Each structure stands twice: as C-alpha cells, then as structure tokens.
Computed example of a mutant assay.
Amino acid sequence: MKQLYSAFQATYHTEFENLFQWAQTQEIIYIGTPGRIEERLRGTDTFFYHRFYDASGNQSEKYIGGPSGTPEGELALKNVQDRISSADMVVQSVRELRKLGFAVIEDKAGATLAALHNHGLFSGGLTLIGSHAYGAILNKLGVKAPSYLTEDIDTVRSNPLSLATTPQMSLLDILQTSGLPFIKAKTGLRSGDKSETYKLPGREKLLVDLLVNGSDIGAPILVPEFEAYAQAVPHLDYLVDGRLESVILSKNYAVPVYTPNPARFAIHKLFSSLSRINQPAKSGKDILQAATVICAMEDKYPGDIEDALNAFPDSGKGLMLKGAEKALPIVQSHSEQYGDVLRRLIDG
C-alpha cells in the first residue's frame, strides 16, 4: 500500500487553525518584510521611519511620523509597532508550520495574493484554484502530502465581482500594487486570441491567470470590472459553488482567500485531467491531486465525494468518469476501502 498523505498531530493542526482564524481578521496586509523602526534627529526633534524589504527584495523606507513625544507622532509610531509585531508573529508561525510539513508558497506569490486581498477581490467573489488551492485544502484537512511547488496563480471570477467599495482599477493595476512589476501578455493558447496572462519580466516564472466559466476551452472573455480578457474553462461554476474560506501561507504572509469545496475540487480535477490538450505532466498532477483529496475526504467526511460526483454536470460527466478510472489505482493503493467506494461511484 502506498500512502498518499499522513495526518498532522492534533496539536499541530490547532496551531494552523489559530493562524487561519487570525488571518481572517486582516483588512489590509502590509506587503514586505516586518522590518524595523529607525529614529532620526532633525534639529532637536526625533522622527520615525520604517525600514523593510519590499516584495522584490529591495530595501525600502517609509516615513512614520513625529516628532517624538507629540500625540500624533506617538500614535503613528504605535500603529507601525503593532503592525511589525503582527507581521513578526506571522513569520514565526509560518516558519514553524513549514517545518512540520504544512504547504507554504513562494513569497512573491504570497505578496501577489495579498494585493488581491487588499482590493477586496476574494471577498468580492474571486476564488483561488489550482495547485495553490490544493495546498490550502491539504492544510485545512490537516494532512501532509506533496503540494506541487508552482508559481502559477489561477483565479476564477464566476460572477461580476462586488467591488462597490473599491475604486475602479484594472487587474494589472491591482497586481502592481504588490510592488512587483507585473506586465500583461498574451496566453498564446490559440493564435490571434485576446486572452491574457500576467507575468513578471525576464526569467521570473510567476504567472497570474484569470479564468471564467465557458465551454470553449481557452476562449477569451472580457471581464469589464478588470479591463481584462479571461480564459474560458468548462464547469468552473460547479467548481466554485459552495466555496470556502481558506488561508494561503508564505514566508511573510497569511492571506485570507476562498478556495473550492475540497470534494468539488477533487471531482473537477478528474474532469480537467482529461480536458487538457498536450499537457500530460499537468494531467498526471491533476489525477494525483484528485486521488489524494478523495482519500482525505473519505477519511474525514465520508459521503461528500459521492455528493460532489453526483452533482457534476451531465455534459462533462463522461470525461470526468474516465478521469476517475485513471485515479482509481492510486486511490486503491492508499486504501482498498476507498478504492471500493470510487469503483462503486464510477459504475453508478
């Protein structure tokens, strides 16, 4: 038997849950390292500055306030001291969780997600999917498994986002508030298409993709609130229905996001594994991720996988069941019992 994952000790998972709950309280995430406060004399008065490293790893400095001893200066100083204390707590907590095997992403990706959070995109309806969501799902389920290091950020806009409190900004403008120099590029999926991706220049591998529901895979669809063309992917409405609060961890950030319901994530992965064109490596990754979540869900929430499979749209069910056939040997290698469950679901 080949075990797909192992469960964290209850005390370790409680540490994660505490950080998860704290992360949900953040309205604004300050991007960069926690940094430190410096005092500088101007004449006879002392003023305060915050020195830190930004998302690109460059030293940065922001004026805090002053003079020392004035109500305004002391209040500004306390606000930044509190921010630094919270940021130090996140860094320490994430460091400990990473050592235990919790999924932690690269910090530039964390800063990018923080920028999306700061502009209300997740609370407004955006959902994180893909391998970053997979890592978050593993963390929430309390299991340790290979989390497939990737710098790609895949997001789904299922309905027009509710951004009434946010000034109109393009997606490119929002991404650049991370302090990272994002540029817009064509996806190259199909010649002449308008669908776009967002990337860092040069050899940087970080990509951000905006996806929408659509039957024509890769077709460009205008998302007016972002001034962006998204890529169509089938059955994303099914995937994000019933989405859940989650958190993404990176070295300096604990970012509140929304991810799919784990059972629907697994079932959609079975479908997407066979809907990919000329991407065998990603298809194999989809199958393994689906098999892992299927087993973890049968451990903790038996019956949820069956409900999710039965709810999958009829138009894609045949392809999804073929994906389930590919996942079956992997599930069986972890648990004959869960393999029997999946076999019964496939046979109907």
Rank of each mutant, 00 (worst) to 15 (best):
A324W: 06
V255N: 02
A111T: 08
L163H: 00
P234D: 05
A254D: 09
Y12N: 13
D314L: 08
A111F: 11
S250E: 09
Y134P: 11
S158F: 14
G218R: 11
K322F: 11
Y5T: 09
E225Q: 05
G323Y: 03
N261M: 07
G179Q: 02
V247Q: 01
Y258G: 11
F271T: 10
F52C: 05
G120M: 09
K269P: 05
Y63Q: 14
V143G: 01
G192H: 04
P167F: 02
K251S: 11
P160K: 01
T33D: 08
G124A: 05
V223F: 07
G214M: 01
M297T: 01
R264E: 01
G339K: 12
F47A: 05
P146Q: 06
K285N: 11
L288Q: 11
D193K: 08
A55L: 00
L319E: 10
L206K: 04
F182S: 06
T187K: 05
Y229R: 13
G188E: 12
T259S: 10
V255D: 03
R40F: 15
K140T: 13
K199W: 04
S60L: 05
R276M: 04
Y63P: 12
K300G: 09
G124V: 06
K282R: 13
D45L: 13
L309S: 00
V91Y: 14
G35V: 05
L321H: 02
L116K: 00
V208A: 12
H119I: 00
S147Q: 08
P280D: 09
R51C: 09
P71G: 12
F48P: 01
G242I: 06
A281Q: 13
R36Q: 15
S123H: 01
D241Y: 11
D347G: 08
D340I: 14
L270D: 09
G135A: 12
Q21M: 14
G66K: 12
L4E: 04
Q21A: 15
M89D: 09
I64P: 11
F122D: 08
N278P: 03
G65K: 10
I287Y: 00
T150A: 00
L236W: 03
R343K: 15
D314Y: 08
P181N: 10
G318M: 08
Y253F: 15
Q332N: 11
Y301C: 02
N278I: 04
I29L: 15
E225D: 07
D54F: 10
S162Q: 14
A114I: 00
S123D: 10
Q26N: 11
V233W: 07
D209Y: 08
D193H: 14
K251R: 15
K199L: 13
R95E: 15
S315T: 13
V94N: 04
V156N: 11
K285G: 06
M169K: 15
G101P: 06
R157V: 12
E72C: 02
P260L: 02
A308L: 00
H132A: 08
A291F: 09
F102M: 08
G318N: 13
V80Q: 06
V104G: 05
V90F: 02
H13D: 03
V247H: 01
L274K: 13
L342G: 07
